[in-house]
Write a protein that binds this DNA or RNA. Structure first.
Lengths: 350, 350
DNA sequence: TGCACTTACGCAACACTGTTGCTTAAGTGG
DNA sequence: CCACTTAAGCAACAGTGTTGCGTAAGTGCA
């Protein structure tokens, strides 16, 4: 089911061109041709279509390099919008972003997770409020797992048996009339960070639990059953204390214990040990930290994780991996959820 | 540089069709159409090209289902061959395989890793011997890392300073006159196992070291700098003994110590703890074991790893992951190296 | 000011893709 | 024997990116 026909080819190349235009304001046809591998004439044809559709507009002219100056082009951010929903226990955050991913408006309110249908209604109303009539390309939802991204169905969320098997994507899609994508909160959050040259990155979230979102070779990696990213239940102490999950010596248990003891630096060092394991296994080129615990003391966590990385991977042949805190802060999941809708437009994942 | 033009489209679709034909003997056009998403007419056209090129032939007819019986088609295995090279300290194994990956002939001889150019000559002669004039599509080389797959250059191999920076791919390609692909031994070995419905799998190798090869979402995952798969140096004992790599509590150090003590079951349990970490992080649907230590007592390792997986991931919502030993045995790396050449023909990785 | 040169970019013709509509081939079953 | 079903190719077609070439719009030198 992975063969391509001409419409698919057309869509793919259009997405590649849009992806290059999203990078920065004012890109010339020549740069797009070079960056995509297409011939200049093909780029001109594709851009003519995109301009006719209102997605792209001219943006003045560049410097001359000895001949006719290049015509610069830009994405039209108002051509479409996406809603990003962070659906969490006790809280609902809905963001409206434009094509460039800029956050325009938001709804942030408490939410008691009771009847699923009632929650769908609440979410749909919040989406309508932030959209305010603007053309919506789709709605992305980030929520704690487990869930099935492909089927769009929630699974056994801890403490909420009535949500097991609920077809959130289908129900919310029917209610809003737009495409809906759902994913784990950590998977959404890893998309909140602009790619910026990074092909493989990891987002590590420390809040009430410890999880990770993975972008590998430029695409969100979900694993065989949308269960990838279980970062917190890796064993880092073979004979360690028993964890709720049944395992012994889980990183999450140790990390949360350190936090409860008020020792954030220790929690950071522990997190760093887990990150070192991940960096060695997956050779990612960037580490982004987030979650309430991290955002409470960002410097402590960046320092602790980076120090542990340096100690546990002393080999100078291993390039040092930059460690940062998510730029989207508390809104990382919602911003990333919107990106679930926008990313396919720009040629990321499929 | 990821846009597509018509020749690329053609090649991609041909690879998809060939990939479906590789699965088993005797596939009908209708099955290919259904499995690829192409229309029957497009499949007929593509197959006509492939038959003209000698890659595909008719293979009788299927049962009638009430009308004209389907014409079955098969891959012509003799249409091309690939050489798989396992280049290791002290040993050179070269395999010749046909398009179906069947091992036809081999050269297995000791090798003292001295002057790189002399080794290139030895490898090239061995390749010529196994090929014996048959049309060679390319040569794949699996060798201990670190190395750069994309550039085809070896890095600082432990104890062999004269190999650092040696452009093995370019030199061997110039000498043999065929395309050459090089990769880490564990990356090659993971390709030796037929995909068989698995989208994401891991190959864990225990020999003189402990490493892993990853296939994620159907493609070999190498990481940002071909360093992915450093499975042995994950921390499983925060305050464990110092490892050669500078870290503490590395899985590899513990595992090798158990082996030296003659306690293979303990080594298997330790390996299983590391595999559990990996399964939770990456949600793979298959685990394949290999390497001299595993092949010496395969049942012990399969049992030990499976038992540890069951204990450390007791949650029934996590589907049990099958654990097996590589079917290619000692030749896993060489067989997988040949697959480095063949896989792109059949639409795996790019 | 004039003119040769350079660079950007679109029009037209083209080669080739997969698709659609239809015909022919080759079976089954009453 | 004949209606029916299924497979598969031929021919015409819509639409892709490519090639060849002409035109627009600058720079730089005499």
């Amino acid at each position: 089911m992975n063969a391509l026909n001409l419409p698919a080819l057309r869509g793919h190349n259009a997405a590649v061109v849009l992806g290059l235009l999203r990078g920065r304001e004012g890109v010339s046809r020549g740069e797009i041709a070079g960056g995509s591998g297409l011939t200049p004439q093909a780029v001109s044809k594709i851009l003519a279509r995109l301009r006719a559709a209102g997605l792209v507009a001219e943006a003045g002219r560049g410097e001359s390099t000895g001949g006719k100056p290049r015509t610069l082009l830009r994405l039209v951010p108002e051509a479409g919008y996406a809603a990003g929903v962070h659906l969490d226990r006790g809280r609902l955050l809905v963001l409206l972003v434009d094509l460039l991913g800029r956050r325009l408006d938001q709804v942030d309110e408490p939410l008691e997770p009771g009847d699923p249908e009632a929650v769908v209604e609440r979410v749909a109303q919040a989406v309508e409020r932030v959209a305010a009539g603007r053309p919506l390309l789709g709605v992305g939802v980030g929520t704690p797992g487990p869930l099935d991204h492909a089927a769009g169905v929630l699974h056994r969320v801890t403490g909420l048996p009535q949500w097991d098997g609920f077809p959130l994507r289908a129900r919310l899609g029917a209610r809003t009339g737009t495409p809906v994508a759902i994913d784990k909160d950590t998977n959404a959050a890893v998309l909140a960070e602009p790619a910026g040259g990074s092909r493989s990155s990891v987002y590590v979230h420390l809040g009430s639990g410890l999880g990770a979102g993975l972008v590998l070779d430029g695409a969100l990696y979900r694993g065989a059953r949308t269960n990838a990213g279980e970062f917190g239940h890796q064993t880092v102490q073979l004979d360690g204390p028993r964890c709720e999950c049944g395992n012994r010596g889980c990183l999450e248990a140790l990390c949360l214990a350190a936090l409860r003891a008020g020792d954030a630096p220790a929690a950071a060092r522990l997190m760093g040990a887990g990150v070192a394991n991940l960096v060695r296994l997956l050779d990612v080129d960037r580490v982004v930290l987030g979650g309430a615990a991290v955002l409470a003391e960002p410097a402590v966590f960046v320092r602790g994780v980076a120090a542990e990385l340096a100690e546990r991977i002393p080999d100078p042949a291993w390039q040092t991996v930059p460690v940062t805190v998510t730029g989207a802060g508390e809104q990382a999941v919602a911003a990333g959820a919107a990106e679930l809708v926008l990313a396919p437009l720009f040629g990321r994942e499929g």
